[in-house]
Design a protein around this nucleic acid. Structure first.
Lengths: 347, 347
DNA sequence: TTGTACGCGTTATCAC
DNA sequence: GTGATAACGCGTACAA
């Protein structure tokens, strides 16, 4: 592993000062004679010079990398978000550091800290921690942060969120429009704002329709992976079926859980949507690949990535706009898992 | 955004030299009196000192971050790999930079280059480029690289791969054991070693059984996302059904494609596995959530991430072991999409 | 045990 | 147009 060539080496060989080399190789706007310029470029090429961005960064204090912290990359929803963020990053010659908090506040805090130590100036985070003091402290020290997906209770932080309440409302609304009256809502623990909002939307729709709410909430702190959600879906579906008059439609708080619900129903020989309709929430790609294809409420995940990336870069460039926050709107994706209720209605 | 506090600030306040501060704060083994140590620590805490890792790195030339380049994070297979890599990275206080090449060799090259400029010393890559010259050049300059999943034709590069040939063989073997004799193989373009290997495994099994191979290969360079693979699956299934005597079992070269195959079959009222059995390849989590749950050949993706992370770190620490390469073994995951062939066998 | 002084690779300031 | 030279924040010989 031979020593790497620096601008000083180039300078020595070209018999110029390192200052001139720097001006050429970092294509600064500073005037340099064409003769020297081409000579330097030639020599740099010959010795295949590779700029050391660390040296540059120490001087300029601009790291060209943005950090992203999410619960887990394994969730396709976050994959899409990240793809969007990276698209913007790439266009602007930035790199993306991805960290999975795995729903562990300690990991999250640790990651934030070392990011700051690495002089990362921009962070996009779907935080699972209640404690924003750490974040705020670093923001005061110059860290730009955007909170996505999970609302953070802090006005000073730019947020990009979904209109979860509306999404929940739309889902219930869709089932109501199909003629269902006994509509169950299957949800994991209502311990996060997003989940409470979806729940609230569901309740609002049911109330407006003058129908009773049927909520099954999982109390367990499951492994928060896709399999975990799937299993919760199965369990909650089973609970709903145990009722004296089971629902004719089930709304699950995320797609993975909806798959679990459908799986449990089919296992019991209940046809979907023949006997019971199911609607999901999130709109991940896989919904179209299952049988039946999943009707769901789509959150624009990729767009969220794009948007948060753009806004973050704007912030880092010093656009001192008043911290604007954005709310993305959900969209109903009608596929085949939710259908008209039977006219041979309730027993 | 006030100026950040450095070791010199601490030194001035504590009335010691910055060298002493450095020794304490970077907890070097260098001896420092307990009195000064605690004093320095106290002051650092009071002024909440944040070490600047860039300064440190410029000095030590060790970046504590590893790069990962994959086709797309959207593919759950790669998500799992990355989760594994990050697990190891976190345990060792490393960060992971993730880059999606999006099957674009230019992006891949660009990413490699800027990683090197950022003084990243370790890279895990699932390369889609034919050209290894760039990689080799950087390796000579001290970059440690591990090629995963996609074989690179270069002995000097440490490789961690799957035994694709065996996987293909096992899949066909399983269908044969279930009594199928007309077994189709649906594959995307055979332009990558991995795909050719699976194909070869299938052929070997069929040959050993003395049965004819039935291969449908997609010629198109699709968008390489999950939806693209799904659509290819649908298309290839349709083609197979158009044959005079369609197969009774279909082996798809990846799970996403298998979902497409199943979807197309069900759309045509063909029961899976009642009339036609389907087996996939990869073993992504979603396979268990579909209906019917997908029988498939599991590649240990997470384990691949763990392993590649470990080996990479070993390399970076200078274990001058002879470049060892590892091959991970596939495993049959029996779920419900492949069943016994009808005894009322061929027409 | 502590301090001094230099260098890591780059850019920026100033003088020429 | 060009060249010295001083930072940037840190670690570390070497000296004390």
């Amino acid at each position: 592993m031979k020593k790497t060539v620096t601008i000083h080496d180039i300078a020595r060989i070209a018999e110029v000062s390192s200052a001139t080399v720097s001006r050429v190789l970092s294509n600064s706007s500073y005037p340099v004679s064409d003769k020297l310029r081409s000579k330097i470029l030639r020599i740099a090429k010959e010795h295949n010079y590779i700029p050391n961005l660390i040296g540059k960064q120490l001087k300029t204090n601009a790291s060209m990398t943005i950090g992203v912290i999410i619960p887990t990359i394994t969730n396709p929803f976050y994959s899409s978000v990240i793809l969007g963020i990276e698209e913007i990053a790439r266009q602007n010659h930035y790199h993306v550091i991805v960290c999975n908090s795995l729903h562990n506040p300690e990991f999250e805090g640790e990651y934030i800290k070392t990011m700051v130590e690495k002089q990362i100036k921009g962070l996009i985070i779907s935080s699972i921690s209640k404690d924003v003091s750490l974040l705020k402290q670093f923001m005061r020290a110059g860290l730009n942060v955007i909170a996505i997906d999970q609302k953070i209770d802090e006005d000073e932080i730019t947020q990009i969120e979904f209109n979860y309440e509306k999404g929940g409302y739309m889902a219930a609304q869709h089932l109501l429009a199909l003629g269902h009256t006994r509509i169950g809502y299957a949800t994991s623990r209502l311990d996060r704002p997003s989940r409470r909002d979806i729940h609230a939307g569901y309740l609002r729709a049911m109330e407006e329709a003058g129908l009773p709410a049927l909520v099954e909430e999982s109390q367990s702190e499951e492994a928060f992976n896709s399999t975990g959600e799937f299993d919760v879906g199965k369990r909650l579906a089973a609970r709903m079926l145990a009722a004296s008059t089971p629902p004719t439609a089930i709304f699950a708080c995320n797609d993975m859980m909806a798959f679990g619900v459908i799986n449990e129903l089919m296992l019991r020989g209940i046809s979907v949507p023949g006997e019971i309709s199911v609607i999901g929430f999130d709109g991940i790609e896989f919904g179209k690949m299952t049988h039946p294809p999943l009707t769901t409420i789509k959150q624009p995940d990729y767009e969220m990535g794009i948007l948060s990336g753009k806004i973050l870069l704007d912030m880092m460039r010093g656009d001192e706009n008043p911290t604007l926050s954005v709310t993305l709107q959900p969209k109903l994706v009608e596929r085949a898992s939710a259908a008209q209720a039977h006219t041979s209605s309730p027993i």
